Amino acid sequence: MNKWMTGLLLSLLVLPAYAQPGNPEKGKVIASSICYACHGLDGVSPIPTQPHLAAQIPDYVVKQLNDMKSVNGAPPARDNPIMAGIVSMLSAEDMRNVAAWYAIQPPHLTRANDPKLVSIGQKIWRGGDADRGVPACSSCHGPTGAGVPAPYPRLSGQYQEYTELQLQHFKEGTRSNDPAAVMRTIAHRLTNEEIKALSDYAAGVY
């Protein structure tokens, strides 16, 4: 079994399961009072550096919220000073509810912005690069970018700027809450041009 497949299986094993579903209507109340300014009530963010949450996989959202929350004064698994203050006010039930609300919103659709980068992004998205140990993005995020429950998020329709920023964080190691270091390993093997191309291509996949 190659290292990539081992990492993939480990990432599935270590991800906690949030089996209890949330209540979308209760989540709407939270979204309309806390989340809407950055993520929109319908999950379409007005800010390119903040992610769209519409149709996002709920377990993935819950994991990210948990990872940004400090427990007993310990540093959170995902460093985000703005979100840390917000999630400190949310209970586990609140997180499930708001994730459930955004999960049922219609997905945001957009297109790639840079035609010059499309071929680069498409090649890695569909086929990866076996020589460098880079798997096809579609193998985990799905051919249409809709994500695969629960560890792999929807990337289709996401802001290019946001996806690029997160890949750079993974590459630099400043974001490290990916199970089994799967994304850190992959991002480290990508050039900055490839990261930009993938982020742009992923936005328009659907």
Rank of each mutant, 00 (worst) to 15 (best):
G27R: 02
N80V: 10
S139T: 14
T6P: 00
L12G: 15
A112C: 07
I82L: 15
L9I: 10
G173T: 05
G157D: 04
P107D: 05
P151F: 06
I82M: 15
S45A: 10
V182Y: 08
A203K: 04
H39Y: 00
S32N: 14
Y201E: 01
H141G: 00
L165T: 15
V71D: 09
A100R: 03
M89D: 11
P135E: 08
H52N: 14
S156G: 11
A180V: 08
M183H: 02
D79S: 15
H169S: 08
M183Q: 07
L90T: 02
P48A: 12
A99W: 01
C140K: 00
A99N: 02
Q158H: 07
P149Y: 09
G127P: 02
D79P: 00
S91I: 10
V62N: 01
G85R: 07
V61I: 15
R189G: 02
Y36H: 13
N97R: 10
Y36T: 11
E172C: 02
G142R: 05
S33H: 12
R154C: 04
A203Q: 08
N113C: 02
P81N: 09
L13A: 15
K171L: 04
P48R: 11
Y206D: 12
A202G: 09
S11F: 03
K171Q: 14
L155T: 06
R111G: 06
Q158N: 02
E93H: 10
P16S: 12
K116Q: 14
T144V: 03
R175E: 09
A180C: 10
E25V: 13
Q56Y: 09
M5N: 14
M5I: 13
T191A: 12
I82H: 13
